[in-house]
């Protein structure tokens, strides 16, 4: 039911972990629904220099978290913000229909991390 790409990212997830001194942290989902994604970003001159994730969830949740870290790394914040959940699913060669809503939250998690970063830097200035 999952594409090879999904299985590859599930088996060899990229950029798993935490960034202790992260500039922004975003968390979406909740344990009741069975999916939580937490994204940590390190930002330098408006560019996402480093990104890590931790995810509780099914195969699709882990694979979407993994691939979005590759999609946004090295991108500007605005470029990263323009990525949609749909694009994440497409990058994985698609997801089963029932996974499109419950487990496809990675873009939301990145957006939440960027918002967190921006609100923090606004407070500083």
């Amino acid at each position: 039911m999952y594409s090879e790409k999904v299985m590859d990212h599930f088996e060899n997830p990229r950029n798993v972990g935490e960034i202790i001194d992260a500039d922004g942290v975003g968390q979406v989902g909740n344990p009741t629904c069975g999916d939580i994604m937490k994204i940590y970003i390190k930002v330098n001159a408006d560019i996402i220099e480093d990104i890590k994730f931790k995810t509780f969830g099914c195969g699709a949740a882990i694979a979407t978290s993994s691939i979005i870290t590759e999609m946004v790394k090295g991108k500007t914040l605005d470029e990263a913000l323009s990525i949609s959940n749909k694009q994440v699913a497409a990058a994985l060669d698609g997801l089963p229909p029932k996974k499109m809503h419950c487990s496809n939250l990675a873009a939301d998690a990145v957006q939440a991390a960027i918002e967190d970063y921006r609100s923090k830097s606004n407070n500083k200035s």
Binding site: D8, N12, R14, N15, V16, G17, D50, I51, K52, K54, T69, E70, K73
Partner: peptide, 15 residues
């Protein structure tokens, strides 16, 4: 999380 360092995909991702 720890991963074996011979993981090609991880090297690609760099981190």
């Amino acid at each position: 999380f720890s991963q074996s360092s011979d993981c090609v995909s991880c090297k690609e991702s760099g981190s």
